[in-house]
């Protein structure tokens, strides 16, 4: 009986250690692989990291989409109605990419302030706005309203 208990205890200890190590590994990897989202205002204010990749989202500015000479690289601006950031992407854009559409791009900031995207996402429902983009738009809108109120008050 006692031996059986001991055996069971060892088994449980083994499992607990295993799960513990696994959890530690997972959490460590987790922190290294997070992708944060920044709005154009935050990027303009220099809050976004320049060393590692992040996600940037907003509305594609009307008239900003240009194709570079090699034919496959596209350059366009995204805005949160307050600040604007330029994005460069080489490859084929999603079907629903167009001016005025809310998009999210994955990539890194280049030294000249252009965001070089390795992936551009536009959602399948044109009425659908990525929640991050909606929140960024709302934040800049609220800021604008607050500023207008302050100006009219003074």
């Amino acid at each position: 009986m006692k031996a059986a208990r001991k055996k069971r205890l060892y088994l449980i200890l083994l499992i607990v250690t295993g799960v513990g190590v696994a959890a530690a590994l997972a959490l460590n990897a987790f922190n290294q692989n997070l992708m944060f989202f920044y709005s154009p205002s935050e990027v303009s204010a220099g809050k976004a990291p320049s060393a590692y990749p992040f996600r940037l989202g907003g509305l594609v500015t009307d008239g900003s989409v240009k194709r570079l000479a090699n034919g496959l690289t596209t350059r366009f601006d995204v805005t949160d109605m307050d600040k604007t950031v330029s994005i460069e992407y080489t490859g084929i854009l999603p079907d629903l990419f167009r001016e005025g559409q809310g998009i999210v791009a994955h990539g890194k900031l280049r030294a000249d302030g252009v965001f070089v995207a390795d992936e551009v996402l536009a959602k399948h429902d044109e009425k659908y706005m990525p929640p991050e983009v909606a929140a960024a738009l709302k934040a800049s809108h609220d800021k604008g309203v607050a500023e207008a109120a302050r100006e009219s008050g003074s």
């Binding site: 696994a22 590994l25 997972a26 990897a29 987790f30 692989n33 997070l34 992708m35 944060f36 989202f37 996600r55 994955h106 991050e132 929140a135």
Partner: peptide
């Protein structure tokens, strides 16, 4: 704490581990 996404690299590394 900010808006994040957890993408391919994390899930894939977990899969490859276990």
């Amino acid at each position: 704490w900010g808006k994040i996404s957890v993408g391919f690299p994390w899930f894939n590394s977990m899969l490859v581990t276990f």
